[in-house]
């Protein structure tokens, strides 16, 4: 079985007295090591789909199985545990913890997982080495550029070597040069660590790096293309 399997999935949100259908009849599967994106305009349902894959939300109908777990059946604590152990998240606006250093920000997911100190230190250093920020380990987020901050966010996402990294518009706040640097780094990590990356984006720069593009329009999969 693949990493993620979504079958006949529908997601509805209450909207006043009626309901708004954000995702309709979604059938998708993802394998380990993919580098793919959910592409579409605003309101097309890409973030909603990312939420469900990330166990931040549940489907209204159908099923979503992520890492052999049915998302719709997970309790709040089980969902949190799934995210903590197996997923990394990258946000549009980095969301680093401002009072902690780069090292401590990257260390934080490992603290939640209660990883022993020696192992934690090694993993943090490895992650910072992958993203090329060894010279910034004692810096605070306010002392970093946008590109550097997003690299810290990437390090925080991959430090626990998750099977899956979910990124929502990761380059939206970066200039072209920094965007390419961050994306190249993600491609490298994807290859070296075999980590699956799923993006929600409409940024052409990101789209250019994707090996699989899933186009969403009005909550439906319009096209699912593999790029060779």
């Amino acid at each position: 079985m693949g990493l993620i399997k979504i079958e006949n999935m529908v997601k509805r949100y209450p909207m006043g007295k009626t309901e708004f259908t954000a995702l309709k009849d979604i059938n998708l599967s993802f394998e380990r090591g993919e580098f793919c994106g959910l592409i579409g305009p605003s309101g097309s349902g890409k973030t909603t789909l990312l939420n469900i894959i990330g166990s931040l939300d549940v489907p209204s109908e159908g099923s979503a199985t992520v890492l052999d777990r049915n998302i719709e059946n997970l309790s709040h604590i089980e969902a949190a545990r799934l995210r903590s152990k197996h997923m990394g998240f990258i946000f549009q606006t980095y969301n680093l913890l401002p009072v902690y250093t780069v090292f401590e920000n990257v260390e934080f997911p490992l603290l939640i997982m209660k990883v022993p100190e020696d192992e934690r230190k090694k993993k943090v250093m490895d992650a910072l080495q992958w993203v090329g920020l060894m010279d910034k380990i004692k810096s605070r987020p306010a002392q970093l550029s946008g590109g550097e901050s997003q690299r810290v966010a990437v390090a925080r996402a991959i430090v626990k070597r998750p099977e899956l990294v979910l990124a929502d518009e990761p380059t939206a706040n970066l200039d072209a040069k920094n965007s390419h640097n961050v994306l190249k780094m993600m491609v490298k990590l994807n290859k070296e660590l075999k980590t699956t990356f799923i993006f929600a984006t409409h940024d052409e720069k990101v789209i250019g790096y994707l090996r699989r593009k899933i186009h969403l329009i009005d909550g439906k999969v319009a096209k699912d293309e593999i790029v060779n």
């Binding site: 545990r81 995210r83 903590s84 997911p109 939640i112």
Partner: peptide, 12 residues
């Protein structure tokens, strides 16, 4: 933001 990130990355 901090609380949101902590929830997202798996803190119950």
């Amino acid at each position: 933001g901090e609380i949101g990130v902590r929830l997202a990355i798996g803190e119950a």
